[in-house]
Simulated assay, not measured.
Amino acid sequence: MGDIAKDLTAGTVGGIANLVVGHPFDTIKVKLQSQPSPAPGQLLKYAGAFDAVKQTVAAEGPRGLYKGMGAPLATVAAFNALLFTVRGQMETLLRSEPGAPLTVKQQVVAGAGAGLAVSFLACPTELIKCRLQAQSSLAEAGAVSRVALPKGPMDVARHVMRDAGVKGLFKGIVPTMGREIPGNAIMFGVYEAVKQYMAGGQDTSGLGQGSLILAGGLAGGALWLTVYPTDVVKSVIQVDDYKKPRYSGSIDALKKIVAADGVKGLYKGFGPAMARSVPANAATFVAYEITRSALG
């Protein structure tokens, strides 16, 4: 079984683990990010993460926390397989000789290359997921226009292409790249740095699952701590109306968010994102490493 096939398989398993563990946290994150600023004298729809969970479960049941999971589940194999495969091929190019371990700097470069590759798959997937997750805030716009809200991933895609063509699925590609390229560079760099620190050198093959969980969790936390404001900009652009958009682009969205809510507006939903990042990314890396090792 070739290295590419092994990375494809292990990346798929890692992606599924990430999705199952992290999607409820992601749903709450998007709901908090996308809720509109209230009118003067009015309160926000959600007072915080716990309130968002309560309202979601009360209105839709526990399955509401997994709303929008169809889109990433349908593409999780391709997304994570691409991420880890490109990273693996980048590692091969960067090695001084076959089998040689990579430095932390080389892992940063490999992660950045993988991030660039997955941006073009992540953008339409994230757009569909975010629009489904944020339907409670989009409902007001739907009621005004008397247009029925889409019921699932394929329905969202049809609505988007009807309003904006295929290019509409790539709305938010700039902030998506602004998240994926530096985010994956940091994630893979931190993951390797923590592993090498615990192993006392570049040979990390002897580390146990506990060490991998710690390294993966810290790597995920570092990713979101760095790119979270970019993710907020991406989310508000992707749930924006196509016919009457509030934002003309990433910079405009950034300015309007800060003008309306201050810098803290760029950290809406930060709690759920960080709560998700540690277990979800730990699950991803452990599942990947175990599967990759089992494949030889």
Rank of each mutant, 00 (worst) to 15 (best):
D3N: 14
K6P: 10
K6Q: 12
D7C: 04
T9C: 02
T9P: 03
A10E: 07
V13F: 09
G14E: 05
G14M: 05
G15T: 10
I16K: 10
A17H: 03
L19M: 14
L19C: 15
V20P: 05
V21I: 15
F25Q: 03
I28R: 04
K31G: 11
Q33A: 09
S34C: 14
P36D: 01
S37Q: 10
S37G: 02
P40M: 13
K45V: 08
G48D: 12
K54A: 11
T56V: 13
E60G: 10
G61M: 12
G61E: 14
P62A: 15
L65N: 07
K67F: 03
K67H: 10
G68R: 01
M69S: 15
M69E: 02
G70K: 03
A71E: 00
A71L: 06
A74N: 08
F79Q: 00
N80V: 08
N80H: 15
L82T: 02
F84I: 08
F84R: 05
R87F: 06
Q89I: 12
Q89D: 12
S96W: 01
P98H: 00
L102R: 07
T103N: 06
Q107G: 14
A114E: 12
A114I: 07
G115E: 00
A117D: 04
F120P: 08
L121S: 14
L121E: 08
C123T: 15
T125A: 10
E126Q: 13
C130W: 05
R131F: 02
Q133N: 15
S136H: 13
V144R: 13
L149M: 13
P150C: 00
P153E: 14
A157R: 11
R158N: 13
V160Y: 03
D163M: 15
G165S: 09
G165M: 03
K167P: 06
K167A: 09
G168K: 08
G168H: 01
F170W: 10
K171P: 01
R179S: 11
G183M: 09
G183P: 00
A185D: 08
I186W: 07
F188T: 08
F188V: 05
G189V: 05
Y191I: 02
E192P: 03
A193L: 10
V194I: 15
Y197M: 14
A199D: 06
Q202T: 01
T204F: 04
G208T: 11
S211G: 10
L218D: 09
L218A: 02
A219Q: 07
W224L: 13
L225W: 02
V227G: 04
Y228S: 01
T230C: 01
V232W: 07
Q238S: 06
Y242P: 05
K243Q: 06
K243V: 00
K243T: 03
K244W: 02
R246E: 00
I251Q: 06
I251P: 00
D252V: 06
A253Q: 05
G262Y: 01
V263L: 11
K264N: 12
L266Q: 09
L266N: 09
Y267E: 06
P272I: 07
P272N: 13
P272L: 09
M274K: 00
P279T: 11
A280E: 09
A282S: 15
E289H: 03
T291N: 01
R292D: 00
R292E: 03
S293E: 13
G296Y: 00
